[in-house]
Amino acid sequence: MTFSVVARDPTTGELGIAVSSCILAVGRAVPSARPGVGVVAVQARSRRGLGGRLLSGLAEGAAPADLVRRAAHAAEDADRQIAVLDASGRIAADTGQGSFPVSGHLVGDGWSVQGNMLASTEVLPAMAQALVAARGGLPDRLLAALTAGQDAGGDLRGRQSAALLVVSGDPATDEDDGVRMDLRVDDSGDPVAQLRMLRNLQRAYDERDYEMLALFAPEGARDLYAAAAASGRGDREAARTALEAMRTRPGWSAWLAAMAGDSRLSAVSRLLD
């Protein structure tokens, strides 16, 4: 019913998972991750609490292979499918004998792909090949694999939801929760494409790509990003026009005044002086 990819970035140490399925809100059910500990995929007919238990096992120092072996021998988990990746890159996966056909998993160096009730036997090899060939950061590589799986047929039943979760390879602290990306598409006719769009939007926020945000941010904030984009390219008149449009909305004029000292807006807000 689900196909997923888990992987570790050998350069940054980040750990992540991308998953898609023809169920509602797969991001609630399949992926689990803990910064500095590991990431787990729990799918097919796995018990809902298994992900947390596997992460706790990793935190206690157990090897992924040992955790997977224990789950494989548990009678109540005969229909489960799991993948376990720890912070050092050790990986193990297993597909229970009772899992839905077409089912299976492939394991490589610091990664695995797994799926059940797949449209064809080509889904998992396509995902593995795309993951290994992809360039860029871990989120982009995970999405490349997920996209390849969908293009090869994905879930036999169709499409509904997808999720992308990436965490730091270092433990969380009071200053940093370690979550690098947590995006979910709970109900969509093309969830993998929607997830890619959200990843691009997240990149725009992270990199302050105001030109893109002026087009794709929520409607109420687009004028603000349009002003920032225009100011960045030296078009003071366009920036002033966008800000004036914002000031006509109830409450926005006071908000702009309050944000005048913010380094992200000071250059823009001075256009209204």
Rank of each mutant, 00 (worst) to 15 (best):
L131G: 06
L164N: 08
R141S: 07
A134Q: 08
L165D: 02
E175G: 13
A152H: 08
L146G: 13
M127Y: 00
L156R: 15
V166E: 09
S161V: 00
Q129D: 15
G158R: 01
V132T: 15
R157I: 08
M117H: 03
M127P: 03
T147Y: 01
A152G: 09
A128K: 05
D155F: 07
L156M: 15
P171R: 07
T173P: 11
A133G: 08
S120C: 04
E122S: 15
A148Q: 13
L156I: 10
Q150A: 13
S168R: 12
R159V: 01
T121F: 04
L146R: 14
L164C: 02
A133T: 06
G154S: 11
A162L: 01
L156K: 12
R141N: 09
G149Y: 14
V123I: 02
R135M: 01
D155A: 04
A163W: 08
L118V: 13
D174L: 13
S120R: 03
L118T: 12
L156G: 00
A134L: 06
L156T: 07
A145H: 02
A163S: 15
Q129F: 05
E122P: 03
A172S: 15
D151S: 13
S161F: 03
Q150T: 12
P171V: 04
R135V: 04
L143P: 10
P125N: 02
D174H: 06
Q150W: 03
P125E: 03
A134Y: 07
D155N: 10
L164V: 00
P171A: 09
A134C: 08
A145I: 01
T147F: 01
G153V: 13
D170A: 15
G154H: 12
A148V: 13
L124H: 09
V167M: 08
G158D: 04
G136T: 09
V166Q: 09
D176C: 06
A145L: 03
R135G: 15
R159A: 11
D151A: 15
L164M: 03
L164G: 03
L124E: 05
L138R: 12
P171T: 04
P125S: 02
G158Y: 02
G158I: 00
